[in-house]
Computed example of a mutant assay.
Amino acid sequence: MKIIDIRGFNLSFPLAEPMGNALNVFRKRDALLIQIRTDRGLSGWGEAGNSPHAAGAFIRARLAGLILGKSPAEYGRHFQSMCASIGYDRRGASMMAISAIDIALHDLAAQMHGISVAALMGGAVRNEVFAYASGPFVRMQPDPYREYQREVDQYLSLNFKAVKPRGGVEPRADGIMANALRKQVGPDIGIMVDINQGYTAAAAIRAARFMEEADLLWIEEPVQPEDIPGYQSFARAARVATAGGEALGSVRAFRDFLAAGTFDILQPDLSICGGYSGFRQIWALAQAYDLPIMPHVFGTAVNFHASLQMSAVLDPRRGGACAAYPFVEYDMMHNPLLRLAGTPSVTRHGMLTVPEGPGAGLDLQPEQLEPWITDSWSEHL
């Protein structure tokens, strides 16, 4: 079996209301999905995170020629050859391009054997993963947190047992928001706050102190991802776990952060860090430091399903929550691209079922993407 075609689909959809986090206000969402097809009629899907147009250009210019005509079963060799080709840009769009291809190759290789990606990676240790609601999101002024109480009630009605609101507006306002949510949901619901790189270390430390009564599981990305000294200061001062890593594109980047004593919880994104292959390298590093690791997920159904497969094989870690880590992130922003294969439903215990069918468990056809396609391209033999 050999690869005969790589197709790229740039997708976009508008939001009815501007919303976002401490770093960005979203008025629309963009994505790049790639479909890799073989001469036997199989298709695998991958996703590039955050820089879709640049990643697509890199695939066409540099990576497509490395895998066309080759077997998808040799995904490990392809990962090495792609990483060897990227030159100076080892943490940006080039790694996102590699991520998309690696995710699709694993999907294809598992389908070739008639097994799930989790089985391809050695076998699932769980068939359900604890899910947390990723939201609510910040609104425009005058009251950025005005919808939080209503939306969290909605999440609880959908069986979520943990929520991750966005913070980072102002330290004292963060404390009011988080402490109000704790009173609203009671002691048994997990709360984590994502600051999305919005603060200096001093401001993040102040915010953490104002939020102490909320009994948070973690504070995520309190400072800029390049600010290792800021992470060190925060980790030493805050009385809560520090999570991060979604913006880091390689195992070497995670090595630097862990050597500096920053993260308590690692959150690589498969669509950014090198797909399954890159994530597994970072997982080995997490094991060496005895730290929990879980996928960051903020994209389409492709990354979501890949993250479920990855979460199924990770070793459990007790982090003080109502369930063992890993958790899987469930984007609660309006996102039709997350529901390409239907709306994933959470069980009454707050769990998501891991698909056990061939590949990543995502039966996707290009025609389903048509309402959101802004551009498409193809590279073939």
Rank of each mutant, 00 (worst) to 15 (best):
H334V: 01
D315G: 07
L337F: 12
Y330A: 07
R317M: 03
Q309R: 05
P295A: 07
L337G: 11
P326R: 05
G342L: 08
R317I: 01
A321T: 02
D315N: 10
A341C: 12
G320E: 00
M333L: 14
L338C: 09
P326M: 07
D331F: 13
P316N: 03
A288N: 04
I293N: 07
H334L: 01
L337C: 11
S311M: 06
L308A: 10
P292H: 10
N335S: 02
P336S: 09
A312L: 04
Y325D: 01
F327V: 00
T300Y: 14
G319N: 04
D290P: 00
T300W: 15
A324T: 00
H296C: 03
Q287E: 15
G319C: 15
G319V: 10
T343I: 13
M310N: 05
A301H: 06
F304Y: 15
L314E: 05
L308R: 12
S307Q: 05
G342Y: 12
H305K: 14
P292R: 02
M332H: 14
D331S: 09
P326V: 00
N303K: 01
A288Y: 09
A288I: 03
L308D: 08
L338N: 11
H296L: 06
C322P: 01
D315Q: 12
G342H: 13
M310G: 06
R339D: 15
D331K: 07
A312G: 04
Y330G: 01
V313G: 10
D290C: 06
N303Y: 01
P295C: 11
A288T: 14
L340T: 02
C322M: 09
G342E: 06
G319L: 11
L340S: 05
A288Q: 12
I293V: 14
V297S: 12
P316R: 09
P295F: 08
A323R: 15
L314Q: 11
P316L: 07
L337Q: 11
V328G: 08
L337A: 09
H305F: 15
M333D: 13
F298K: 00
V297I: 13
N303R: 03
F298I: 00
A321N: 06
L340A: 06
A306F: 07
R318W: 03
A324V: 00
V297L: 06
L337I: 02
P292Y: 11
L338W: 12
C322G: 11
R318Q: 06
V302Y: 14
L337H: 09
R318V: 00
A306K: 11
M294S: 08
D315T: 08
H334P: 13
F304V: 04
